[in-house]
Design a protein around this nucleic acid. Structure first.
Lengths: 209, 209
DNA sequence: GCCATGCGGAACCGATCGGTTCCATTTCAC
DNA sequence: GTGAAATGGAACCGATCGGTTCCGCATGGC
């Protein structure tokens, strides 16, 4: 519902630059993203989001049709950030499939790491009909496709998507282990396993990068 | 929906024979376990557990101090079942480390598979001080220790617990992938990766100190 | 000046949450 | 059969949930 509100509101009139970040929608998204990630979606109430962000109750419902709508908007923004920040960065780092685990290791070192926000969403929102659930599912397929792209660019064959699926499984495994241990070791372990896996993987006859 | 008593009931004749399964505590545990697993802990209210199990509100609070207490009790029973059912069964199946993924594949084929209940608990209850959180953490360490036992029994070295940790990571990864997809393929993939991993793993020299 | 718009505060809503209490009934050991 | 224990039903509680509505204020474009 209210899918029209999921875009950044910059299109509305000419928002002159210089306007402070008082915009309610942005603050709501930022605050909700933090709280949802740290506490979980269900454990975070509208009340807390309003109190933390300083946004009024009425303003909230002017921008989002419901809490569920906010959840979806937060996930959409996360997906967009993955596509526009994480993926380009990994390509810039050489784009070897193993870079996936190097970047994950960085995230694991951050304090407050709480696992993959999308996997957590799948756990918290089991109903496949829920838009938030689908958003998380779609993101995982995006990641797998990205992994497949890295594999292809480095001459690894991905027959039946077997290799990209396995690497994503390692990535997800490292994410949940990192959720438990709060240490980058999980990413290092996963990287080591991935290295063994890639060493035994068939190479395509194509060029080698 | 009040006839929730027709659920599959694991044989538990711990009580004096003759007593019908009317005991409120057992019914509460059975019902709560199913609902918690299917819907999530936070999404499941006391109300629904009472309605489904047919247990009265008063009886509930005679057996459990709070909902949190029930959550912990459910997790404890799950852990006990792992130790008394799953582990012995895997040993009986030969005890090769790969049997872990064969048994997981079976679970993935069951309808209603919703991932690892303990990982889901860690996601839903992030606070490490919560008893339920600790229960889940402790269980994972149990599983790792069990994997280490299987490795040792089959001549695999587990220096610094590196191998058992990696296998558990694969197991967790397959669990969350299985949560997304509804197919045992995740377990098969994980098994294949584990096979490669074990093939390159150092073997202990028969008997080693 | 004007007035559109966006905003925060607060009162209010019905529903549901987890939890307490009292009571009539059922169950079971003896 | 009797008595104690266990149980289910229901009324009730304060708190909080997500959500609606109105109102007064601060903008900023024109």
């Amino acid at each position: 519902m209210a899918d029209g509100t999921d875009r950044f509101r910059l299109g509305q009139g000419a928002r002159t630059l210089g306007t402070v970040a008082t915009h309610a929608r942005e603050r709501l998204l930022d605050t909700a993203e933090d709280l949802f990630y740290a506490q979980g979606v269900r454990a975070t109430g509208i009340e807390q989001i309003l109190a933390t962000s300083g946004v009024g109750r009425a303003s909230f419902y002017r921008h989002f049709a419901s809490k569920d709508d906010l959840v979806v908007a937060v996930l959409r923004r996360r997906r967009e950030r993955w596509a526009t920040v994480s993926e380009p960065r990994m390509r810039a780092l050489g784009g070897h499939p193993l870079v996936l685990f190097d970047v994950l290791a960085e995230r694991l070192e951050e304090t407050g790491y709480r696992g993959c926000a999308f996997l957590n969403t799948l756990v918290e929102i089991p109903d496949a009909d829920e838009p938030a659930h689908r958003e998380a599912m779609d993101h995982k397929e995006d990641v797998r496709a990205f992994i497949a792209e890295l594999l292809a660019a480095h001459g690894f064959r991905d027959d039946g998507q077997g290799l990209s699926r396995s690497l994503l499984m390692l990535y997800d495994g490292a994410s949940v282990v990192g959720l438990r241990e709060r240490s980058p070791r999980a990413a290092h372990d996963a990287r080591a396993v991935a290295e063994v896996l890639l060493a035994t993987a068939p190479r395509s006859a194509q060029v080698d990068a």
